[in-house]
């Protein structure tokens, strides 16, 4: 637990847009995240949460600062950091199995080994009966499970999740939160989780970062000191859980007033 797996040092992002000139998308961010931690990021829309996650993933280049993962500078995407997007981003021309096999195949596994690996993960996300389906034939919740399985399949040590449950209905959302915690509990990956839901952040995380309005800085960090494994029904009645939620919501409300 002691080592910092992710070191984000003075990262900012400026977009050069032709119409509006330079646009600061992300302020100056410095965060350290320990291995195995589940970290959530909250903040007003447009403050740069996705941008930060994309920089971590190596999809977008930071304008200043740098990101170190296990002491290595991030220069591009790599299988140690697996993204899960709100829009699922499944390959529409591949079946469920084909999507989940993609990573293992890229990692150089044989077809049989990749298939076996993909099947394991489909069992993990309860989709073993859907391997021949195409993404368009699945519900939103199922699609997100496939996306999660596809990412887990190549064994990233870090999960970068950008509002993964944002497009789902409330019921599916809570179910997937439980499943995610379940999966996380097995091998304790480091997770960076962006969300708009304060309850979700508190329920899932060890730490919650609250960002300011655009261009976002870190405003405050909450260490969520709640026992694991967490059970939703118990937490809802837990005074400490309620206090965290209220405190974070207050902080975010203050910001809204500042904007207004």
């Amino acid at each position: 637990m002691a080592t910092d797996m992710i070191k984000i040092a003075g990262v900012s992002k400026v977009y050069d847009t032709t119409q509006r000139g330079r646009h600061v998308a992300l302020g100056d961010i410095s965060i350290d995240i320990a291995e195995g931690q589940f970290v959530s990021i909250l903040g007003p829309s447009g403050c740069g949460k996705s941008t930060l996650l994309y920089i971590l993933g190596g999809f977008v280049e930071a304008t200043t600062g740098q990101v170190l993962v296990n002491g290595q500078k991030v220069t591009g995407p790599g299988p140690d950091r697996g993204p899960v997007f709100q829009e699922f981003a499944l390959f529409p021309w591949k079946t469920v199995l084909g999507n989940v096999m993609y990573g293992p195949l890229q990692q150089g596994l044989s077809k049989e080994a990749a298939t076996a690996r993909a099947r394991e993960l489909l069992v993990l996300v309860h989709l073993q009966n859907y391997e021949g389906f195409y993404p368009k034939e699945l519900s939103g919740g199922m699609k997100q499970r496939v996306a999660l399985a596809r990412t887990l399949a190549y064994g990233p040590k870090i999960l970068l999740m950008d509002e993964p449950f944002g497009a789902l209905d409330a019921y599916t959302r809570t179910r997937l939160q439980n499943e995610l915690l379940d999966i996380w509990g097995r091998d304790r990956k480091t997770v960076m989780f962006v969300t708009h839901s304060v309850e979700e952040a508190v329920f899932l995380s060890d730490r919650v970062f609250v960002m300011t309005k655009s261009p976002g800085h870190i405003r405050k960090v909450f260490d969520i000191d709640l026992p694991r494994p967490r059970v939703r029904a118990e937490l809802l009645l837990d005074r400490r859980y309620q206090d965290y939620v209220i405190a974070i919501e207050r902080l975010m409300d203050e910001q809204i007033e500042e904007i207004a």
């Binding site: 999809f59 995407p77 993204p83 890229q106």
Partner: peptide, 9 residues
Amino acid sequence: LVWSARAAG
């Protein structure tokens, strides 16, 4: 879609 593939290696 491309990022998902890039991250997978």
